[in-house]
Design a protein around this nucleic acid. Structure first.
Lengths: 192, 192
DNA sequence: ATTATCTATAGATCTATAGATAATGC
DNA sequence: ATTATCTATAGATCTATAGATAATGC
């Protein structure tokens, strides 16, 4: 994004909106051009091909995930200074009690806030060559820190969170499933 | 499958082979017909539309998953009669020690044995109306039994397993990641 | 009679290139 | 001069229907 021209940025934002509105398959050069009020061939003066546009949308998604997790880390650090959790009488009940719970909640909220972009960014190989250096690593860091740099546990937690979100977005759980309870069950056991 | 004509079955098997060979997007009525040595319009005498063929491939995938998990359950029941695990001197080290570990291993092996069919069957909404009654429930039962019918934990375990497999198939882990270790970390903590 | 196939074809799309034209920035 | 746009168009696909033809099963 940062290395794009202003017009390039506009195009990517329109592409993102298109994906979010109608799913990854709806991102065609024609639909994108329509959205922008221009003709499809004009897009090729800004991007070499469709894959380049798609990669920028994916980069946006990853960046947002990274920022959402970093913000959750910070909020948690502020609200839970150090001592073990002690529920205050009358305090809101649903504050996350652990850093991992806070990150899990943020991960889910971010993914469900733009499910189609989430799927575009996760359910296919990453176009790593077209992404900003270090973006992938940055998105992974909050979980690594929460897992005390135990990479195996961090990967297991990531897989759990991704699996929950993926299955939820694709409507694979029963309609009446208590997904909050499933998240709690997973986070609680993965906690240590 | 069972409710198909013999020719219908051949068509579905060819479709399955096509998906497995070249991915879900490669399943087109033309490519399928080519594979069978006929012309595309002929397929419409056997299936009303492409979605119907796809649904049968998905049903095959689900059925295989169910059978793989059931077989793993049975193998585990035979090999680990009841007593807590005691490693015998000189015994093979990599026998799964718990039912959950056995199921996790079977889930991964099944998915990686035909990754494209796995993705077709999981990374989109299920065409439930076109699937055999109870197939979805059957595929879910082994995990439910392993989790003592704690549905929240069963869903968490499923999400973990699906997430691991999905991320692995899409090449989202680093090439040198020790995925066996991540599986162990996840299964161990989700164990209870 | 029914079934499986075929040819021909309608009707939608897609991505991407070539080359012309208008507008903007020195 | 450069940049952003346009029109025209090549070249690939796709799904699905209509109607003809050949083969099979009573």
């Amino acid at each position: 994004m940062s290395r794009l021209t202003p017009r390039g940025r506009e195009i990517v934002l329109a592409a993102r909106a298109l994906v979010e509105e109608s799913g990854p398959a709806a991102l065609t050069m024609r639909a994108l051009a329509d959205h922008l009020g221009i003709k499809a061939p004009s897009l090729y003066k800004h991007f070499p091909d469709k894959a380049a546009v798609e990669a920028e949308v994916i980069a946006l998604g990853l960046l947002e995930t990274a920022e959402a997790l970093e913000a959750a880390e910070e909020r948690f650090a502020r609200s839970a200074p150090s001592a073990p959790f002690v529920p205050e009488p009358g305090a809101a009940v649903d504050e996350p009690r652990t850093l991992l719970a806070a990150l899990a909640r943020a991960y889910r909220a971010d993914a469900l806030a733009h499910p189609h972009v989430y799927l575009l960014a996760t359910e296919r190989p990453l176009p790593r060559h077209a992404l900003p250096e270090e973006l992938e690593a940055r998105a992974a860091m909050p979980l690594m820190r929460a897992c005390d740099y135990d990479v195996d546990r961090a990967r297991a937690v990531w897989a759990f969170a991704h699996g929950m979100v993926s299955l939820e977005i694709h409507g694979r759980f029963p309609d009446d499933a208590d997904l909050a309870a499933a998240w709690r069950a997973g986070v609680r056991t993965l906690e240590r």
